[in-house]
Design a protein around this nucleic acid. Structure first.
Lengths: 116, 116
DNA sequence: ATATTGTTCTATTACTAATAGAACAAGTGC
DNA sequence: GCACTTGTTCTATTAGTAATAGAACAATAT
């Protein structure tokens, strides 16, 4: 469970960290597991504890973790099926279908966009 | 050719405007056509001319328009391939990246949506 | 020539990110 | 019960960016 941030990126640190946690949610990180204590993670990432807590609170607002004093940040059950991009994917496929683009064409566009 | 911005949105005005132009590129706005003069658009949107010019310069950096003094902002030939689907794909990949989802995860979601 | 239109420059204001330190409160574990 | 852990809240400072404003400039169009 390794989280990273890049201080030289224009993306805010707390957003980078939240993104890093979400990324782990799709892999090994399961419901009930604990994230590192904010003070520990802040120390190892060399960022302020407030920055870590802001990322945690963002994830809490999204329903991905529970925060409790003394216990820390715990991955929720609903975090497993969480996908905020689903709405956009639905819109994309609807529009593509309307214009006569098939699955492979769309996936090709996605790959190209990721590569750019 | 109607462009809009929402001053109450947390998204920067120049980014909103660039997104609005990109959206039009897929619908009706063809290569060689001129965008409104920055001063005119700034006036009608009630934003600063510098804000409009920043959006235009962003679009120029993306290769979607050419900027020339006296002539204004002209849609490039390359922009023609910028379909509504491309716009949505850009939005999708941007959002996915922000949330820490990688290419394979996104493509998996697209396949699932096509299958449904 | 003159008007149009983007470019560049300085400057100000407002907002946000990130940091820092301290005190506090709720939960854990012996 | 008591010490420890860990998130919460508060004030404060610094740095960076968005947006605005105004002016002068330079290339292009008509």
């Amino acid at each position: 469970m390794i989280f990273t941030v890049d201080p030289s990126s224009p993306v805010p640190l707390f957003e980078q960290l939240a993104a890093s946690v979400r990324s782990e949610l799709g892999r090994g990180l399961a419901a009930g597991e604990r994230l590192p204590a904010a003070r520990d993670l802040a120390s190892s990432l060399e960022v302020n504890i407030h920055t870590v807590l802001r990322a945690y609170q963002l994830l809490r607002d999204e329903g991905l973790v529970d925060l409790r004093r003394g216990r820390g940040a715990v991955v929720t059950a609903q975090a497993a099926g969480y996908s905020p991009v689903t709405a956009i994917v639905t819109q994309l496929v609807t529009e593509a279908t309307r214009l006569g683009l098939d699955q492979d064409s769309v996936i090709s566009l996605v790959r190209k966009e990721f590569a750019s």
